[in-house]
Amino acid sequence: MNVSVGIPASASLALVSAVNLAKRYPVSAGWFRRDRSFIHAVDGVSFDLMPGETLGLVGESGCGKTTTGRMLVRLTEPTDGQVLFKNQSGDLEDIAHLKGAPLKDFRRRAQMVFQDPYESMNPRRTIFDTVAEPLHVQKIGDHSERFERVSETLSMVGLTPPASFLFRFPHELSGGQRQRVAIARALVMEPSFVVADEPTSMLDISIRTGIMQLMNELADRLGIGYLYITHDLAVARYMCSRIAVMYLGKIVEMGDTEDVLQYPVHPYTKALLSAVPVPDPEATRDALSIKGSVSAPVDPLPRCRFYDRCPIADDYCRDNDHPPLEDKGAGRLAACHKA
């Protein structure tokens, strides 16, 4: 089924397009309070991802990154909005409508590397079975072909020699080794779109760099598009051509990674950059201008989501709705009344 809703012109080239995505969770406030409150986990998020492109998604813990990623691969159903995905004939389709063979094809082509590597692993299955499972489900190759392909993928992610890992169980691996099994499991399918949720957070620099190079090479060679969720801005700098910064369910800034990192526009992005620690024991950093405290987005007021913590907020910010994400020049999008 082709989509009839207004597709932005640029989206016709896109691999994946998020259109006004929203997810609200009802809040369990307690036994006596039955009035409906909602967490606005994701609140009107839109972007396009091109084939071969890596879009970085960064932002505060709890701001809705994982929820956004899960909606893109249809593991969480949006409350509002759509996810459009380029199908094999090159048309954008609303993934909510997929069934049968097209759904199965989508499941093969869109993979997720989970933030918690345990989430995608059955503790009673060996590493071989874990990585081979998607091949099995999709009936790809016979046993010896799968064995080859799994071994090769394990070496690609630095689990060498593969023979010493294939028949271990997930709990017999270190944290970073498990993370790499999760990456291998997603890549073994040769997908066209991968949501990678903090895929290298537990890896040391050297191994992490190796994985980043592998993912970049696959993007160039196979045209894989990645949504790369990370807290590590240096990783985003090396992995992502564009970056989107989220705060409490909203994208507050988006643009070319290098530009955003060198000249942040939104006060939250500025605060984030000033908090990056430096690898020098003699260095001291000033206390941050904003507090670490997090407000949960329960029934947010119609004002800028960052108002309570913003160092430059004024009365206008208090009395008006959350600012739109708009072009602030040179293709930079930001949502701030004062930027």
């Binding site: 505060e60 813990s61 957070s201 807290h231 605060a271 908090a275």
Partner: peptide, 10 residues
């Protein structure tokens, strides 16, 4: 590892 740098700093 799963925290943004502002919360981490705090």
């Amino acid at each position: 590892t799963a925290l943004d740098v502002i919360v981490q700093d705090h």
